[in-house]
Nucleic acid binder design. Structure first.
Lengths: 192, 192, 192, 192
DNA sequence: TATGAATGAGGATTCATTCAT
DNA sequence: AATGAATGAATCCTCATTCAT
């Protein structure tokens, strides 16, 4: 089997460097040079591969979205029944592959900057709508109408809040514990 | 009698302008000139009154924290019993004086940028610790030990999540409705 | 009587510097720093006053067009009859105020770069159309129909050619002699 | 027989591409990549074959000069008498092989950039001197001394002017018509 | 008290050139 | 013979800050 083309490899490396650099300096403040230094390459390379700073940051965002989406699909494959599906979706946000300080940090940065950049706003909006409709579909089968939105907003906000905290954590994150916690929250929100 | 000194008036005007400008351009991207234009004055004035861009942004942050703290104290004055106190504290986050798109936007921006600026980090940490301990004090009287932290984290994250959403709202916010919502969430989280 | 506002003075200085720098390095190759050095100021000032390099170059072009137009109007004021008017218009191209190496050089540069910049193309087109229609108006009264265009094209091309040569001259130009020369050419083109 | 060596073929292709690209972007603004794309090859090839960007542009210039010189020689071969020779030389500037928008465009670009590049300046100077002395030689036999230079300058300037116009033409050029025109101009300049 | 002209460090980006393949 | 990945110098531009007025 053929190996990965150079282009793909470098894309991956540069996106990794971007995640590190955004985590360290913030989305709006990070410079091409900081990212290049992190990737141990020249600033020009980033333009060679992504055309512009914006191009790299967009690709980085899409990478994160894909990781999250894949984690969700994987967990959903094993879930039966609305309650399990709800838990699976919520827990995928704290998947080992996604719930790291760096990625939460970048996620938060993207979010905070979405209002000021169209490309980000679009991605953010799409992702948010997807999660909302997924949650609603399951909650419909679990709670009476007047309770559903309260629970959904609480759950969605909970996940946002945990990410935000994680982005500023001083010690290592604990994804499995976080998955237990979100399950408890769901238990509480679904109580009759 | 005795009107406000000019210095204080200008400070207020410039902080108001900073809030508007940060909301429009983002914390990291906003420029001295944008703020000055919003305040209908010259860029030099900001340095005259605040010494630096950082000085103004710090003062702006403190202003928001004060508004929030005052709203909390005011509501707590009328609250009796732990449940009422918990609701009062939570609802103060959605007080008419505080819960506007502009202020939520700036609040979110401060938060997202706290990891990259010491002054912000300090303020953010203090505020967060205050809220946490306040919540804990009341929850101690309302829930068994093993349930308290789940509820507290859920509640605190809920408020963060609502602010984040509010910062990106396209239509006018509805503070009273938001206060009703948070009460429902608390009801659910406190269910036995 | 009030003195010129600072803004106007600096505009003039910077345009003068731009003319010198374009003459030395060429329109497409000249840099903001070269112009700034020529004006004995910082590169930032040019952006402060003109917004961009393009802004300054556009203003420089308009300045040259105005000098030429003013010289034409001045000479036309004293001219009576079509022949004198034709000579006046042609000679204004070699007016003392306009016909210097530096200005011919910049003029040539603008012209050569017009195909690649809309702003330049527009100005160039307008100016060219103006000269053409002026020439035609007078030639109509001086030559039979089938001869007019040949003469007009020859005359217009002659002026372009002299400018082009002047731009590359190694010794000082001689505007009065050039005005005598163009008169001779006109004499020849108008021979019956 | 024996076909052209690859080296020569590639040289030709790259020069053709350079002419197209210079016409499209201007001499000073054109990039190696634009030329390479036009030649459907990689940027590295140009350095492989010409050593540098400057090398290719110089070769392109020499190519144009050769085309013009060949056209002149060809036409001179058939011309008898000074008047016919003068016409032949003038008309060769508008030969079918030379008088195209692209080539006029590049010609103009070379000319405008000659003052800023030694290699170009040298070629330009040589060519100009050649034309001048050729014209003078024939005019000596056609006009009295005091009229020769006026006519020569007018004729040389006319050709420059027509090229300059042609470089910016929006519709297809008409070489035969242009040759008729220049003959009329010569008729007029040679009138006694 | 307030202005805005001026500066210069630092940003994103472009591009000729080199070189390993 | 030809490629295109990689570099880094150079360019335009932005912006906080200073300071004379």
């Amino acid at each position: 089997m053929g190996r990965k083309p150079i282009k793909e490899i470098r894309h991956g490396e540069l996106i990794d460097a971007a995640i590190k650099a955004i985590h360290q300096h913030g989305y709006a403040a990070v410079t091409i040079i900081q990212i290049a230094r992190e990737a141990d390459t020249a600033a020009g390379s980033i333009h060679y591969y992504f055309g512009s700073k914006e191009g790299l940051l967009g690709a980085t965002m899409r990478r994160l979205l894909n990781i999250l989406r894949d984690a969700t699909l994987e967990r959903l494959a094993d879930a039966t029944g609305p309650r399990e599906r709800l838990i699976a979706m919520a827990q995928s946000n704290f998947d080992n592959k996604f719930f790291s300080i760096e990625q939460c940090s970048v996620w938060t940065q993207f979010w905070a900057n979405a209002p000021y950049e169209d490309a980000l706003a679009r991605l953010h909006k799409i992702n948010r709508a997807r999660v909302r409709s997924n949650f609603r579909a399951e909650l419909k089968l679990l709670l009476p109408p007047e309770e559903r939105e309260v629970a959904r907003r609480a759950l969605q906000a909970y996940m946002d809040g945990v990410w935000l905290q994680a982005a500023q954590a001083s010690k290592q994150l604990d994804p499995p514990e976080e998955r237990r916690q979100v399950k408890k929250v769901i238990d509480r929100l679904l109580m009759d």
